[in-house]
Design a protein around this nucleic acid. Structure first.
Length: 313
DNA sequence: AACCAGGCTGCGC
DNA sequence: GCGCAGCATGGT
């Protein structure tokens, strides 16, 4: 049964266009494809691919199934996935109130109005992606991810477009570091990712197990116990995959740049000022980090200029 | 050519 | 517990 729509309600302060804009920033992310007013992505549900198109229809996210089955089993999975991806059910009014109080951030609720923290619901994907992104620039990280996904993930073809599924931990666990070094992983990051995949295969870690731990610190520790996952990666994954509200990815280059841009810290090493700053946003640290990252993206004007240049060249 | 990039490990203290 | 070198991999 195709052509069935799902509707997912959204609450106030939700802008699908802002979310789409973020998904389509200036990077080439192979895990989804953005169109005007919609985004397509394929999910793997019980080993079967389901291609979705998400768009906005009145006060609902509208999910159309372009390929694959939608039934009593897959529907809850899809609903849950989309909800964790766009977080349309959150109430971010309190966050906006805090932003408005802050001198150099007061512009954000208007400038980024309705942007939600875009999640990566799959924990293995979130962790593997953040390991890929360690200490390398983002355009390069996205290129490495694309090579990795195109080689070791599966995909489906629809209307002449390939939609990719992230490699499974079973597949990755069987790789040798050399397989990944070929695609410009550093040897160490290759070892990290394969080890991570192995931990998932062995059941040493899972999203469910992690979510079941009693507090934030335990969840952080469970992650940093894995080789290759430091505090930055742990916080990134907890923020993107487990909706942890108070994650500060310490040392993050982008975060530090954003804080410098907003004159919130003077030196990148100034962790004291940074901590005092974050204390003004209790419970919204993750959201704040996400909005600060958003502030690093080029403005709409710059982006249009950029594509114009590329086209004429 | 030097410095940067959404860091981590291991060591010495 | 904290600071710091050493480390890979490319981009600008």
């Amino acid at each position: 049964m195709t052509h069935v729509d799902l509707q997912i309600p959204v609450n106030d302060n939700f802008s699908f266009n802002e979310c789409l804009w973020f998904l389509n920033r200036n990077f080439d992310d192979c895990m989804h494809t953005v169109y005007t007013g919609s985004v397509r992505k394929v999910l793997l549900i019980d080993q079967l691919p389901v291609l979705l198109e998400i768009s906005m229809s009145r006060q609902h996210l509208r999910v159309q199934v372009l390929r694959g089955e939608i039934n009593d089993q897959t529907e809850p999975f899809i609903r849950n996935y989309i909800t964790e991806w766009f977080n349309p059910d959150e109430d971010i009014a309190a966050f906006y109130k805090l932003l408005i109080r802050h001198k150099s951030l007061a512009y954000m609720p208007e400038a980024f109005k309705g942007l939600r923290l875009i999640g990566i619901p799959d924990l293995f994907e979130a962790l593997a992606w953040s390991i890929i992104g360690q200490q390398i620039n983002l355009p390069f990280a996205y290129r490495v991810k694309r090579r990795f996904v195109e080689k070791y993930g599966s995909s489906i073809l629809h209307d002449d477009v390939l939609y990719h599924i992230f490699p499974s931990c079973e597949t990755v666990a069987k790789l040798n570091p050399d397989d990944l070094c070929e695609m410009q992983f550093s040897r160490r990051n290759a070892e990290y990712i394969i080890g991570l995949a192995d931990a998932f295969v062995r059941g040493e870690i899972s999203k469910q197990q992690l979510a079941g731990l009693s507090d934030f610190i335990s969840r952080q520790k469970a992650l940093t116990n894995i080789r290759g996952i430091g505090i930055w990666t742990a916080n990134y994954a907890l923020m993107k995959s487990l909706k942890e509200p108070s994650c500060i990815p310490y040392g993050d280059a982008g975060l530090l740049n954003a804080l410098m841009n907003h004159n919130i810290i003077r030196e990148k090493s100034d962790s004291k000022e940074m901590n005092t700053f974050f204390k003004k946003f209790p419970g919204w640290e993750s959201y704040l980090v996400f909005y600060l990252w958003r502030s690093l993206a080029p403005t709409e004007k710059e982006k249009i200029l950029d594509t114009t240049v590329r086209q004429t060249v």
